[in-house]
């Protein structure tokens, strides 16, 4: 990708050469390290509680509509 011969690719943005593979690898590794650290943080209870509440509310509203019939 990105040969200089295509006249439609004349701007500096698309002409930006990609990083050498070795540097891409270094950056990718650091990014993943930082990201994995975030992923490994314990999940607060509020999210489990939230989903339980949503499900509960769903079931309650189903029962209500059944009662109305």
């Amino acid at each position: 990708m990105g040969t200089g011969s295509d006249p439609k690719r004349g701007d500096s943005v698309t002409m930006q050469a990609p990083l050498p593979v070795e540097l891409q690898g270094q950056i990718g590794q650091r990014l993943r390290e930082a990201y994995i650290e975030l992923i490994n943080e314990p999940v607060p209870d509020r999210f489990v509680t939230l989903l339980q509440r949503l499900k509960q509310r769903e079931e309650e509203s189903k029962e209500e509509s059944r009662d109305e019939k």
């Binding site: 200089g4 004349g10 500096s12 002409m15 930006q16 050469a17 990083l19 050498p20 540097l23 950056i27």
Partner: peptide, 20 residues
């Protein structure tokens, strides 16, 4: 501040702009 990439990229960017 990875050195090799810095010089490589500022050059290639410059070349790109110059060509355009």
């Amino acid at each position: 501040g990875f050195e090799a990439g810095e010089s490589f990229n500022s050059n290639s960017e410059f070349v790109g702009v110059a060509r355009a």
